[in-house]
Design a protein around this nucleic acid. Structure first.
Length: 674
DNA sequence: CCGACCGTAAACACGA
DNA sequence: GTCGTGTTTACGGTCG
């Protein structure tokens, strides 16, 4: 590849020898064509936003987790009369009073909906949860309003005797236990199945229920004191490398969370604090009773216990509060599970993007002998992107090619060989390549883009929207490890594509030639029909003419470029594309800039007049000729008309010289055949 | 099956 | 003559 710099040296005075991926512009900055010689793509920060979202999500999850922990503590404590639990104190306290001002009442369903639909920031989540909690507590404590389920519950409890209350409490606790079981917070021992509890309990007498209650409670407590339950809740570091979790595994099952190092801080310290601080209690903090809606001031722990036993004894009110607290916890858990799932998907998604390249060292050894088509068929079972967020998406080892992740659309995953046919000739977005930049840079995987698309991308990525052939080569080798081999093959393909595609415009100046792209033409996807004479202009006289006019582009498309006006579509296309094409070139490079300005001016002038079909061009407009060349055609509906028009050029140029182009005389006919 | 597209290889021309 | 560049053609495969 080093040898390829010869031409470039000629053109800009500094060789480009960075086939392995160095930064071109540094080497080229001294050249006159420095502006356009850089095909380098600035590193795109593809992951920043995603990571930010993931971080935010994780923060939200942490907050939710903290809230959930506390809620569970409160729930457990409020629902249980076990003496063991009285020694415990919550490590976290929710400032319930903060949110009391919110007048709105959000039903659990609404809250759940909100929580499910949105990714809340930590602050938002916290505020929302606090508000909701506060509201609910207010409602229960005042008995002004209760949600339906609560009303039913309360009516039921009011009609029940103490025995029934016990039964209800037992059911509540069973629900709680079931919930905890689902979450993996509670390990049900073999001899102590929890599921049969429900039918069992219904047939039990209160004393039996109480006994069972105590057993379950103690089991729960014992389980809790180990800290395992809490550790299972810690999501901070666990989800990166794990595969997409199933719904069930999402629910914080400690047995399922084997893949992540469980963060130690919160859980164990909490449980230890409970053990180590006998006077701590989840419902007691800062001298205040933390019973939902209570906030009674208790001078010391003893008075708190007294208060707790007196004011929050087992009655319908406490039961209702407990139940509501359970609802809160459940919703938090649900939200947590969903957020965790979301985070999991996000992390998996980002993980795939960031690490897959290295994880797939020899993803597809399509390198050498396999043809593009073969690789395409192997690599891409499908041609349309699908969401990477689906659990199935990420890594399918063998057949998988690169994971293409689109940010804008984060949706392409897998080896997608994109073929940009004329019908589906959608340009590759910068993101398409950029997002997988690292992958293709490191893995010798054939990019699922056509040469034309890649060439276009290379050109468009360049500051000046123009590259020399050598720069295009460099871009390929720099951006794709795959193109660091078999140079002859793909370089030949590049050249062929440059010549073959209408969208690529060769521009020649005094320093050499470079290639630009007509994006509109590219989107049209038209190729120059094979067998038809094209850009090549063997006419010696013409060459002579070009020699006298360095800015003249050689690859003028055939004679009709000089005798027919541009069609409207072409004009629009040119107006859109040509100016940016040259704008940057005109800056910072005097010579080329002048040339570019001249071309642009000429082009603009031509644009304004082409509709007239008039040959308004003057000899002085010669640079202009250079520009249109290639696009001359292409109104599919009316090829001939499309062909026709372009008179920019000048009678003067329309010299006998061009008549030698008889080879191209039938071009319009051929194009019509398109 | 057909045609368009694509990738590849090759031939050829041209200029340095 | 060699090399880089550019064009054109042929061929086979894929895909709609």
């Amino acid at each position: 590849m080093m040898q390829e710099s010869g031409t470039e040296t000629k053109s800009n005075g500094s060789a480009i020898q960075n086939g392995s991926g160095g930064s071109n512009h540094l080497l080229e900055c001294g050249g006159l064509r420095e502006g356009r010689s850089n095909g380098e793509t600035p590193a795109v920060d593809i992951g920043a936003a995603d990571l930010a979202h993931a971080q935010q999500q994780q923060q939200a999850l942490q907050v939710a987790r903290q809230l959930l922990l506390q809620q569970q503590q409160q729930q457990q404590v409020s629902g249980l009369k076990s003496p063991k639990r009285n020694d415990k104190q919550p490590a976290l306290q929710v400032p319930v009073s903060v949110a009391m001002m919110t007048p709105q009442v959000i039903t659990p369903q609404q809250m759940q909906q909100i929580l499910q639909q949105q990714v809340l920031s930590p602050q938002q989540l916290q505020v929302l949860l606090q508000q909701q909690q506060a509201l609910m507590l207010q409602q229960w404590s005042s008995h002004f309003f209760l949600p339906d389920f609560l009303q039913q519950q309360q009516v039921a409890t009011q009609q029940l005797a103490f025995q029934q209350q016990l039964l209800q409490m037992q059911q509540l606790q069973q629900q709680h236990l079931l919930s905890l079981q689902r979450q993996g917070l509670l390990t049900i021992q073999p001899g102590q199945p929890a599921l049969p509890l429900q039918p069992l309990a219904q047939g039990m007498i209160p004393t039996e229920l109480q006994q069972l209650w105590k057993e379950v409670t103690s089991a729960h407590t014992a389980e809790e004191t180990t800290g395992n339950n809490h550790s299972s809740l810690d999501l901070t570091t666990t989800c990166v490398s794990s595969s997409a979790p199933s719904k069930t595994s999402l629910i914080m099952n400690p047995h399922a969370s084997t893949n992540g190092q469980l963060s130690v801080h919160t859980p164990k310290r909490e449980s230890m604090s409970h053990e180590e601080h006998p006077h701590s209690h989840p419902l007691y903090g800062h001298g205040v009773c933390k019973w939902p809606g209570c906030e009674a001031v208790c001078e010391d722990f003893q008075s708190f216990l007294k208060h707790l036993n007196s004011e929050h004894a087992l009655d319908d009110r406490s039961t209702a509060q407990c139940r509501v607290q359970m609802q809160v916890v459940q919703q938090l858990e649900l939200q947590l599970a969903k957020d965790k799932e979301r985070l999991q998907a996000m992390m998996t998604h980002l993980h795939v993007k960031s690490t897959e390249p290295k994880a797939a060292p020899q993803p597809l050894n399509l390198v050498s002998s396999v043809t593009l088509s073969k690789s395409a068929s192997e690599a891409s079972p499908q041609s349309l992107p699908h969401t990477p967020t689906t659990p199935t998406a990420p890594l399918t080892p063998v057949t998988q090619g690169p994971s293409v992740i689109t940010t804008t659309s984060m949706h392409t995953v897998g080896p997608i060989r994109r073929r940009y046919s004329d019908k589906y000739n959608v340009p590759i977005s910068s993101a398409d390549i950029a997002q997988n930049q690292e992958f293709y840079k490191n893995a010798e995987v054939r990019p699922p883009f056509t040469y034309a698309s890649l060439i276009r991308q290379a050109i468009l990525e360049s500051p000046e929207k123009q590259l020399t052939l050598n720069e295009i080569y460099n871009w390929f080798t720099r951006m794709f490890a795959y193109f660091r081999r078999n140079a002859a093959t793909w370089k030949g393909a590049i050249r062929t594509n440059l010549s073959l595609h209408k969208c690529f415009i060769r521009v020649e100046d005094e320093f050499g030639s470079f290639w630009t792209v007509d994006d509109e033409e590219f989107k049209r996807g038209r190729h120059i029909q094979r067998g038809r004479p094209r850009k090549y202009c063997p006419d010696e006289n013409f060459d002579e003419l070009v020699a006298h006019n360095p800015s003249l582009i050689k690859n003028m498309q055939s004679s009709h470029a000089y005798c027919t006006p541009l069609n409207a579509a072409l004009q629009a296309s040119m107006a859109e594309n040509s100016i940016p094409l040259y704008t940057t070139a005109s800056m910072g490079n005097p010579t080329l800039g002048n040339l570019a300005s001249a071309i642009r001016e000429e082009l603009n002038g031509a644009m304004e007049h082409t509709n007239s079909n008039e040959s308004d061009s003057s000899p002085g407009r010669s640079p202009m000729q250079a520009v249109h060349p290639v696009h001359v055609k292409e109104e599919p509906l009316d090829p001939e008309e499309a062909e026709g028009p372009l008179s920019l050029v000048t009678t003067a140029n329309h010299s006998p010289d061009f008549d030698h182009d008889r080879d191209y005389e039938d071009e319009p006919v051929n194009e019509d055949m398109e």
